[in-house]
Simulated scan of single mutants.
Amino acid sequence: MHEVIAQEWDRETIDGYEWQRRWEAAFSIGFERADNELTAEPVVPEMVGSTAVVTVLSGCQIITSNCGDSRALLCRGTETIPLTVDQKPDREDELKRIEGEGGKVINWNGARVFGVLAMSRAIGDRYLRPWIIPVPEVTFMTRTDEDECLILASDGLWDVMTNEEVGEVARHHLRRRRRSISTLDDVSPAQVVADHLTEIAYGRNSSDNISIVVVDLKTKRKRQQRL
C-alpha cells in the first residue's frame, strides 16, 4: 500500500495550494491499484478482502485515509480525537449509497451488506460489488506540540473499547513509560501501549482480528525538529 501511494503522489501534479486534492487523488488511486493487484492474483478468491487505514505523517500534518472499519485516533493533550469514521452499512450516507445501487443492508448480528459483510467499503470482497467499494475517505489534521500519540487499529480493538478508553490507556502508559525509560530498554513506550491495548482486547474476549500500531508523536516531533 505504501509503495503504490508513494508512486501516485509522485505522479500527481495538481498546482498551487491544492496539495490536499493531490493527497486525496494519490490515496484514491493508490487504494484502487491495491484492490486491482489483490484481485488480479488467481489464488485470491473473490470473497477475500480487508479494511485499510493508512496515515502519512509530516512535520506539520497528519493525513489519514480509511477504507472499512479500522480506525485512526489522535491523543492530543487530554483530548481523544477520531481521525476516521467507520464505514458501516447502516451509516446514513453509506446505507443510502448501497440501497441506491440496488443493494440491501440486513441486520444479522449487526448491520451487514446482504447479511454478510459488516462494513461498507473494503479492499477486495469483489463478490459484493458495486455495494462494497475500495474508495477511501481522507482527512487532514494539523499537528501541534500537544500531540501525544497516534493509534491505528482494526475493529478487534474498537469492538471492545471506546475511543475514550483507548486514549486514556495510551496517555497513562506513554507518560509513565517516558518518565522511567532508560537507555537499556529495548521496548519503546509506543510498543508498550500497543501490547497493553492488545492484552485488554484479549481479556475482554474480542472475537475479531486485533492489529494495533501506536506512533509516539512526541518522539517524532523532537526528531524532526533536530533535522
Rank of each mutant, 00 (worst) to 15 (best):
L184C: 06
Q20R: 15
L152P: 07
V85Y: 09
E37F: 01
R21W: 08
M47S: 15
G102Y: 13
A40C: 04
L157F: 06
I181M: 10
H2L: 08
I81E: 09
G16I: 03
R223T: 14
A6G: 14
I5N: 08
W131Y: 15
Q191H: 15
W9P: 00
D90T: 12
G100E: 08
V214M: 04
V213G: 01
L73M: 09
K220G: 02
G102L: 08
D186N: 07
G16D: 13
M119Y: 11
D159M: 02
G110T: 03
E41L: 06
R21P: 03
E165F: 09
A40Y: 02
M161I: 03
R33K: 15
T198Y: 12
A26H: 04
R91T: 04
E41G: 00
V44P: 03
E37T: 03
E137P: 01
I212V: 15
R178N: 10
T39S: 08
A122P: 10
I63W: 03
L157R: 06
T13I: 05
N109S: 13
I63N: 01
W19D: 05
R226T: 15
R143D: 09
T139C: 06
S207A: 13
I181V: 13
L197P: 02
C67F: 02
V43Q: 15
T64C: 11
I181N: 08
E12V: 13
N205Y: 12
